[in-house]
Design a protein around this nucleic acid. Structure first.
Lengths: 138, 138
DNA sequence: CTTGACCTTCCCTTGACTGGAAGGTCCATA
DNA sequence: TATGGACCTTCCAGTCAAGGGAAGGTCAAG
């Protein structure tokens, strides 16, 4: 298979596949004309990577997950630990975003959104303590 | 004030403050020795930027928010629209992260995490349909 | 007079790609 | 056989919002 075929079948852009080769995640063979030449196993790896990335794992996590996947004497505990660490990062991000969302929602709620310049959003950003937002924060 | 003082007082690293000057968000004066020389107004701007960034606004959003803040004939509707667009991006991110979290939580739950190689997390990444995760997805 | 804390600019690195230029290859059609 | 278009290749630059560190200038205390 050429890169276009694996791109279609894996759902990953050709650019991304080349990048993954660049950083050593996959090692496709080359045809006589210099084109990359992918086996089914390469496609399988790419699909694996695509799913891991879609779950938010970093490239380095993916590298370790692939290594574990290919290590038949692995301990599932190692995989689970990777996943748990990743999970806690995700939960921290969610909490951060939710805090932003809550503050923003409240500020937006307080803003008239009309043609007048007076704006509690800007007032808050400029350092003024907004009574409504403060109250909600308690 | 020198950059160290505003860094301390604004809570932003000196590197970040120089960067903000670089991209035109602030324009501190210079002393005879070439040192940046910050007024209270610069400090106020930096604090504004710090708070806007903490709410997740992009640098370009911050630039617009600052412009609106300094425009006494602004319409609060413009500020509100910026905030609402940002809010919807945040909500989309939260939803993405929650979906990842839910899948990961389920996978982690299914994994024994012991010394054996068998692992539902890797099984899922490799493309197998996991009955438990599939069931939860319904 | 020296030490150490501060300041300056400059360039490189991050993560995970994406875009684009310049050029080679392959295949079908005229 | 020519040619056009769809592929493929490598390489370089850019994204976002800084952070790291080198090389060198400045300032104040002891």
């Amino acid at each position: 298979m050429n890169i276009g075929d694996v791109a279609t079948r894996s759902g990953l852009p050709a650019k991304t596949i080349r990048y993954y080769e660049d950083i050593g995640l996959i090692k496709p063979h080359r045809s006589a004309n210099g084109y990359r030449c992918f086996q089914e196993a390469d496609l399988h790896k790419l699909a694996f990577l695509g799913r891991a990335r879609a779950l938010g794992f970093s490239i380095e996590d993916c590298r370790m997950l692939m290594a574990l996947y290919e290590d038949e004497s692995r301990a599932s505990a190692d995989v689970k630990q990777l996943a748990l660490e990743h999970l806690s990062k995700i939960e921290a991000k969610i909490a951060d975003l939710q805090a932003m969302r809550d503050t923003l929602t409240e500020l937006v709620h307080c803003c008239a959104g009309d043609s007048r310049p007076d704006c509690p959003i800007l007032k808050d950003l400029s350092g003024a303590l907004s009574p409504e937002v403060e109250a909600k924060a308690e």
